[in-house]
């Protein structure tokens, strides 16, 4: 019984991950070439034009694997725009504003908990919650141990300046 549950959970996890990554749609920002591999000097896999629609298959650091008109290849993540209005599959949609009415959006629709400007304006500072927050904090040693267990590697990276415009 327990084993079934574990298998089921694993299957659910797998579904969540794959479906969340599978169906994202986007557009190419600047014309160029898809690359066969996620490296700047990789072989070209086929040309793409500005605004060409693509399906995003995978994200890997600075790169995304995309598919368009039957051609697959890698493109810089920063050369992609996600299709507007498309909520990510697998993620819950915030707010669901369409269910709210009136200027304040305060219709008592169950399950919707927003935090808008008015909520902050009207908020009374909650020191019980602040105290609870304090109890959840972890020490630097705890954080380091967790990072080491996860095999996170520290890198030496200098702060960035603003850089130059592309044009």
């Amino acid at each position: 019984m327990r084993r079934c549950a574990a298998i089921l959970l694993a299957a659910v996890l797998l579904c969540r991950v794959t479906s969340a990554e599978a169906a994202e749609k986007g557009q190419i920002l600047r014309a160029g070439d898809l690359l066969a591999q996620p490296f700047i000097d990789a072989a070209k896999a086929g040309p793409v034009t500005a605004n060409q629609p693509v399906t995003i298959l995978e994200r890997r650091g600075a790169w995304a694997s995309v598919e368009s008109n039957g051609t697959k290849g890698w493109v810089r993540l920063l050369n992609l725009r996600l299709e507007a209005g498309a909520a990510r599959p697998g993620a819950s949609r915030p707010g669901m504003a369409s269910l709210r009415t009136g200027s304040s959006g305060r219709t008592a629709t169950t399950g919707i908990k927003g935090m808008d400007e008015e909520d902050i304006r009207n908020a009374t500072p909650d020191y019980q919650e602040l105290e609870l927050l304090g109890t959840l904090a972890v020490t630097a040693d705890d954080a380091r141990a967790t990072a080491q267990k996860a095999a996170l590697k520290e890198n030496t990276v200098a702060y960035l300046d603003k850089g130059r415009s592309r044009k």
Partner: peptide, 15 residues
Amino acid sequence: LQTLSAAPEEKGYAL
């Protein structure tokens, strides 16, 4: 930021 840029015009993102 890409997720936010493609977000629907909903109250949940307004603030």
